[in-house]
């Protein structure tokens, strides 16, 4: 008789089977993470010749540093704006495509393309489009009397990176929203329309609540993306400027560590980012456990 529980003939076989996974985790996660933790408690002298162990001094300094607190605020604004824009636009696309009968597959295919474009290339694309001297967007905005300059104006720069970052994520969100919409039984929509709800009302009282599992999942994914996966976009467009207006935490780690050479502080920042990722991951797993919330 076969039981559910696997039994191995050799005592060592299960360990051997697990070993590659454990090894990869050790080499690519545990080791760098512990390095970062260790480094975050060191302080290097200006010439990088010797370092001293300073306990949590690097963290204390960070939280007293107005630039760091600014970067946190910038990150919050950037993440929320990117998530909102990426989700709102993709939901709109999904709703529109879901209503099509014949051309649905065509649109779906076309809308997925941006996901295949490398972040740096996409960044260059946006850099050209918004370029203050040769770009099409500033040229058109000029027509409306708006003087676009993301190299001088912090708000313009923020809008640029939000659009560029959100654009990348729309394909992904779109696919999930479309699948979510298609899993809502047509008869519910019909029942609601007989119950006197117009198109808009049906969307907000039936469709949107029934999409909430998808929406919540995407929200976490998008926040994680905006916070950690947008380095390429920012590097190719604004490089964190002007005057740190788009200097989000991830970019600041790079700037302080690799450009500024302050490895201790940079490591401390990475540790904080790691803590944020862990919290977001836990939230997401918790939620997946009880997926259906209605």
């Amino acid at each position: 008789m076969q039981t559910k529980r696997m039994t191995f003939s050799s005592r060592w076989l299960p360990y051997a089977l697990l070993a590659p996974q454990v090894l990869i985790t050790l080499v690519f996660f545990v080791w760098p993470a512990s390095q970062a933790l260790w480094q975050s408690m060191l302080r290097e002298d200006p010439f990088g010749l010797r370092s001293t162990f300073v306990w949590f001094r690097n963290f204390e300094r960070l939280f007293a540093d107005p630039h760091y607190l600014d970067a946190m605020k910038t990150t919050a604004i950037f993440s929320v704006a990117t998530t909102f824009l990426a989700m709102a636009v993709s939901l709109l696309f999904a709703v529109m495509v879901n209503r099509m009968l014949r051309s649905r597959d065509w649109y779906t295919t076309l809308l997925v393309w941006p996901y295949a474009v490398a972040p740096a290339i996409a960044g260059v694309l946006w850099w050209f489009m918004f370029n203050t001297s040769v770009g099409i967007v500033p040229y058109m905005l000029q027509g409306f009397g708006y003087d676009w300059n993301h190299r001088l104006d912090g708000t313009d720069a923020m809008i640029l990176v939000v659009i560029a970052a959100a654009w990348k994520q729309i394909s992904y969100n779109f696919l999930f929203f479309l699948a979510g919409l298609q899993s809502i039984p047509q008869s519910l929509i019909e029942a609601a329309s007989i119950d006197g709800a117009g198109r808009i009302k049906r969307f907000w009282t039936i469709v949107f609540p029934l999409l909430s599992p998808t929406t919540f999942f995407l929200m976490v994914v998008n926040v994680v993306y905006a916070m950690f996966d947008t380095f390429g976009v920012i590097h190719a467009t604004t490089e964190g400027g002007p005057a740190r207006a788009t200097n989000i935490l991830v970019y600041k780690v790079f700037r302080d560590g690799f450009v500024g050479g302050n490895l201790g502080s940079s490591a401390a920042q990475s540790v904080i980012l790691m803590a944020i990722v862990i919290v977001l991951t836990v939230i997401q797993f918790r939620w997946i456990e009880r997926r259906v919330n209605y």
Binding site: S187, L188, E190, A191, I194, L210, S212
Partner: peptide
């Protein structure tokens, strides 16, 4: 006329109750 304006009510085969 739209379904809402016909003053009718319908009972569906799968009931179509709003699950949330």
């Amino acid at each position: 006329l739209e379904p809402a304006d016909r003053d009718i009510a319908m009972v569906f085969q799968n009931y179509a109750l709003y699950p949330h």
